[in-house]
Amino acid sequence: MKKLIMPGDILLSRPIRIEHTIVENGKTYATVLGVFDDEKTSFIPLEGLWYPRPNETVIGIIEESKLNVYTVNLNAPYKGIIISKYARDPIVNGDVVEAYVKELDKTGTVVLTRPRVLHGGKVLYIKPAKIPRIIGSNNTMAMQLSAGTKSSVAVGMNGMIWLHGGDTDLATEAIFKITREAHISGLTDRIGKMLGASSAEAQPSPEAHREA
């Protein structure tokens, strides 16, 4: 059975080691909102912060460059850094970059490698807990997003998503729909319908909003 769990709720009356939980007095408690599947003993957070892991993709914005180091804003409790000798493209403050986590060092700084500057476009910030649904299993959702909107999409595990070209409004709308409905089954189909319906129209008009 799947069940909505709130922080502080007991998951199991025995200690287990899964993410986003704590063990107190031999029992396991959730520390964030999520869905617990007691058959699979899996806990999927609905809200939560990002904890960097090696080789993960992140999107960030260059904040500062000095002493051969670029500082990257990852919209997270960790600052990112890129050693400038690893940067192939010229990088300036304000650039949006895609990069990979090398490690989280002891000072809470995320060391990044293989930066790629993403020119133009816009960056969305969503809650990192929703990112796995944006990507989908085997990258299906991200591919569907990009095919249905003709936008280039780069997804960072830190909750930042870069969009460029095509129908970025539709892509934005679809991403926010995913974040709102991440926990309701049949999501891939609903998003497919949303993107399919729009791309079938001649010259899609993304402005379906009211005016004053």
């Binding site: 709130m6 922080p7 502080g8 986003h20 704590i22 107190e24 408690y29 520390t31 964030v32 909102l33 957070p45 809200e47 939560g48 912060l49 809650k127 990192p128 807990a129």
Partner: peptide, 9 residues
Amino acid sequence: AMSGIPIRD
């Protein structure tokens, strides 16, 4: 609780 910051209760 909505923020996703880990809490005990």
